[in-house]
């Protein structure tokens, strides 16, 4: 059986909030190392990969591999009943028909309990190769969101150029052009505002802004976001959580002109 308790329901609420517009039905794959999810969006352009490590739960117990087939819209409805600060426990039998969710308030003695029906989801898993990216850019997640939403007002796609001079996000649209350039920047007092650019070779890739703006719904999970680029491979956008847990998005680049 599975029993996994989060100290803060907000973690799961934010994760599900961040992916529910990209993915509708998906398996939460539970094993002794934690709960993982891998799913593509309907158009097979983007891939979501979530890992909530066992260490992110206290306690965590999972005796056998269990796939929890969930409809994320339904899960959202149930999670809406949890306060951000509530403790959240997920429970399921070894071959479950439903997922049991318990929300416990820390402030008072309120306990709420829900059972969510599960579904059989036949999901393809893709092998994601280990990649040495040519450029790895770490920046405030709010800054990345701002850049993507600002540029989306002008264009459907953004070109990201990473060079020794910095990283440039630029777009061309019917009403005109736009570009935002960031350089490495260290803020000693507020490290969450740092911009770090690691580069082994210059990169230039074009991506659909619609998807990037969608990924930015995960900004609530982490002050910083890491974006990794190599020519002609999918972009990786990573929101790191505590205990090596993470939410990653991969996006196929646009090809040609």
């Amino acid at each position: 059986m599975l029993e996994a308790k989060l100290d803060q329901a907000s973690i799961l609420k934010k994760v599900v909030d961040a992916i529910k517009d990209l993915v509708q039905d998906c398996n939460f794959d539970c094993n002794d190392s934690g709960i993982a999810l891998q799913a593509m969006d309907n158009s097979h352009v983007a891939l979501v990969s979530m890992a909530l490590k066992a260490e992110s739960f206290q306690p965590y117990r999972c005796d056998r591999n269990i796939a929890l087939g969930l409809n994320l819209t339904s899960l959202t409805k149930v999670l809406r009943a949890a306060q951000n600060e509530d403790m959240l426990t997920l429970r399921a039998e070894d071959a479950p028909d439903s997922l049991n969710l318990v929300f416990e308030s820390k402030a008072d003695d309120r306990i709420s309990e829900y059972d969510l029906k599960l579904m059989d989801i036949d999901q393809e898993h893709l092998g994601i190769p280990e990649t040495e990216y040519a450029a790895t850019i770490t920046l405030p997640s709010s800054e990345f969101r701002r850049i993507c939403t600002d540029l989306m007002a002008l264009s459907e796609s953004v070109t990201i150029d990473a060079s020794k001079d910095g990283v440039k996000f630029s777009c061309t649209g019917d009403i005109g052009n736009g570009a935002v350039t960031l350089r490495s920047h260290t803020n000693v007092d507020k490290p969450e505002l740092n911009v770090d650019i690691e580069l082994s070779e210059p990169v230039s890739l074009t991506f659909s802004l619609k998807y990037l703006v969608n990924f930015c719904k995960a900004s609530a999970l982490s002050h910083q976001v890491k974006i990794c680029l190599s020519n002609e491979v999918p972009l990786l956008v990573e929101y790191a959580l505590e205990n090596q847990s993470h939410l990653r998005f991969y996006l196929a680049p646009k090809i040609g002109d």
């Binding site: 593509m40 158009s43 097979h44 352009v45 983007a46 891939l47 393809e124 898993h125 893709l126 092998g127 994601i128 190769p129 459907e156 796609s157 061309t172 074009t206 659909s208 491979v233 999918p234 991969y250 996006l251 196929a252 680049p253 646009k254 090809i255 040609g256 002109d257």
Partner: peptide
């Protein structure tokens, strides 16, 4: 501008 590639052309099925 540019055609959208599929993620499946980069990552293979397990």
């Amino acid at each position: 501008k540019g055609s959208q590639g599929s993620i499946m052309s980069f990552f293979s099925k397990k």
